[in-house]
Nucleic acid binder design. Structure first.
Lengths: 234, 234
DNA sequence: CGCCTAGTTGACAAGGCTCAACAGGCGTGG
DNA sequence: CCACGCCTGTTGAGCCTTGTCAACTAGGCG
């Protein structure tokens, strides 16, 4: 589980596929996409493999193209704190673009995953040549910033139930839909700043209240958005 | 240094002063600074005044030039949750640049404050004309994102003492220095996800442990960074 | 089919929140 | 300039929530 990820350097086709699937580059024209593809290196990781680990000096932007990457922090009591989960289109390493970021987190593939990597120098050059790219990067960062600050306000709530309800409201976007948890329950518990035991109990409480029903390991269906809303903060 | 330009565009003097003091625009050349100043509108707020309130549709970037702005959220139990405090050079409203942001927070001046405002249209135009501006905006957003995510990891810690110790470590940057709290203790308590009572007790605990000494309302001196570090998480 | 991890449930203890009363600064007005 | 008053911060006591530890169940993967 500590093996190195496989790197590939071949035709541009692969890079193009990687690049064109990513929202950040979506509105670029074909020739510009090719320029981006030229400086992109795809890497692959199988389930459980580590993409990067702490203390590596990084000057690379990682963009998830397919699969899923779990970003977590290892506390010195041995507990893993999940920071977030990267799905296709998400990226990590933006700070590496401006300072020599020393990663303090682990990135681990939770399934077979393909990532695009772009070096700092290549990306800054690209940004200066393609203003639309700068705008879409800014937009992506702004969105992430908003969600990070939102999460911070959620976590500042001392009671576990509204914290969980607020999280589920975000996931379901206020509607009574079925949804799949983006991570395991123990990871979710860490993400929400509680123990797996508490998460289990609070979920049960929501089921009892008639707000949600659970089915299977990661499936949740919101049946009464109003009840959930009433338990959520704000 | 502003004088020279002021002679040519006298009406811009105020805007230039506002713009040139802001880190985001710092490395722009003089003519570019003038372009920025041309689309900037300074606004002023006295202590206690509200800069904006929730449900206002905003297409504006606010940059604090002097003074301090407190950004907070009003829960429906009437309690204020401080999201962060903006000091000179900090900005807010970046999400407004990409979507019609509906502010969910209040912004209130804690002292006599001057802000620069730039409209969405003006800023996107500027970005496309000035690649370095895009880079420095990206850099600023990345830094804020990092600190927001860091705060989220802090808040996910259930025990109040390490949470506080971690916050103080961040403020003091690991050194044994004197520091001034950027906000009142009750605001800090909300920011750290605890009650003012808990904050008071935990601070006392840190003083007892010999890690810090307090003097006055907002002054804290770290006397033993190692002790503080030992109590902080990671 | 069986093992191993993820998830659940229960009992207990500890920590933080709540409520309430008190002290101490700072600004305001006399 | 002083005194008063208000707001900020502190201290105390009790209860409630959540973390901890432990045992148990349920899926998933080999």
């Amino acid at each position: 589980m500590v093996e190195h990820v496989a790197e590939h350097h071949h035709s541009l086709a692969r890079e193009l596929e990687c690049v064109s699937g990513v929202p950040i580059f979506q509105q670029l024209a074909q020739p510009q996409l090719t320029s981006v593809a030229e400086v992109t290196r795809p890497i692959h990781a199988k389930k459980g493999q580590t993409v990067f680990r702490p203390d590596e000096v990084s000057q690379t932007l990682y963009i998830v193209n397919a699969g899923q990457v779990r970003l977590y922090h290892l506390a010195d009591d041995g507990k893993e704190r999940v920071l977030r989960v990267l799905n296709p289109g998400d990226f990590i390493g933006e700070i590496a673009l401006f300072t020599d970021e020393i990663h303090s987190n682990y990135a681990e593939a939770t399934q077979t995953t393909e990532l695009c990597t772009i070096s700092r120098d290549a990306l800054t050059t690209l940004i200066q040549r393609m203003p639309p790219l700068a705008l879409s990067l800014l937009s992506a960062l702004a969105v992430r910033l908003k969600s990070a600050e939102h999460q911070a306000t959620l976590l500042a709530i001392p009671d576990a139930l509204p914290r969980l309800a607020g999280y589920l409201m975000d996931l379901s976007q206020g509607k009574a839909t079925a949804l799949t948890l983006p991570m395991s329950k123990q990871d979710l518990a860490a993400y929400l700043g509680m123990t797996p035991e508490s998460l289990s109990r609070k979920l049960k409480q929501l089921v009892m209240a008639g707000a949600i029903v659970t089915s299977g390991r990661r499936e949740i269906r919101v049946v009464d958005a109003a009840k959930l809303q009433a338990l959520a903060p704000q």
